[in-house]
Design a protein around this nucleic acid. Structure first.
Lengths: 161, 161
DNA sequence: TATTGTTATACTCTATAACTATA
DNA sequence: TATAGTTATAGAGTATAACAATA
């Protein structure tokens, strides 16, 4: 746990002058960089997507519903790795906005099936534009490493879930 | 926005049977994978670090203080990219746990300087053990790509901040 | 005038547990 | 007995705005 650079009473002055702070061993931890990169990406997306209704969480849910029309709430909850009780308010909100319709399943009367409305599809297309614009920013940063990077991130998500 | 796989009334049955859901274009978005990988990593860390006081946020703050003794609250807030008003309760909590000491700056009477206590240093060493164990899990997944991956994540964080 | 840190306040996201209605 | 979805509730974590003290 030895620190990397000399520290002393003069350090405070450096901090106050706005110097870069030392992050030490954190710099070698993949988990830390994952956190930093995600945080920056998340904020940039929220910042640029103008419409405050277009949070990353809702976007992911709508995308899953779009790609799996008729999906049930529990299946959706598994797909986006959230508890089913977290899905209820999310879906209610999307329904309130007229983006999703819920229909009782004909097969299992406990279940509700989900579909995007026409407005939902339009909103999703719009969201996707923002997401793609956002991703182009990322593309510009990672260049031809994109495929490889995605593959690594996917492996991480799978291995740790 | 065409979907990738055939969808129909039979889809719901597939969902109910627990089939993997289609995520569509999301799969090509770096931002999405960043979210998934971070989410999985974050949860795994919280799950494995036994001690519930060792949240990633506190860990990062303690690490920055360790590496920059005498840092002020505002400088810390910049270092971990949070508003200064979010730092107050965080530091109060660390102080309550006896992990951090606050001293008025002799130079600027508006400022407070932060340092880890001996207990704070011990706790940090412990935290670091957990973080490293966690990172070894990640290492096992990414193998010799680690350096490159970290470099890419750092570039992303820097470009988007 | 600008900055440091605190407070008041509120919002988002999420989870656990208990419930109902079905299976 | 087990599962789908809802509700009640609570806890992190964060931000904005306004403020007092100080620069």
């Amino acid at each position: 746990m030895a620190a990397r650079r000399a520290k002393s009473a003069t350090n405070e002055a450096a901090q106050q002058a706005g110097d870069a702070v030392a992050i030490g061993v954190l710099d070698e931890l993949l988990g830390f960089h994952l956190r930093q990169a995600h945080d920056a990406s998340f904020r940039a997306f929220a910042r640029n997507s103008g419409d405050p209704r277009l949070r990353p969480g809702r976007f992911a849910a709508m995308m899953v519903i779009h790609n799996n029309p008729g999906i049930t709430q529990v299946a959706l909850s598994r797909a986006i790795a959230r508890d089913k009780s977290s899905i209820t308010p999310l879906i209610q909100e999307l329904q309130r906005l007229g983006l999703v319709i819920r229909k009782p399943s004909p097969r299992d009367r406990r279940s509700t099936t989900l579909r995007l409305t026409a407005a939902g599809e339009r909103m999703l297309a719009d969201l996707l534009e923002h997401a793609r614009a956002h991703d182009r920013q990322l593309d510009a940063v990672v260049g031809d490493k994109k495929r490889e990077l995605i593959a690594l991130l996917r492996q991480i998500a799978e291995a740790l879930t």
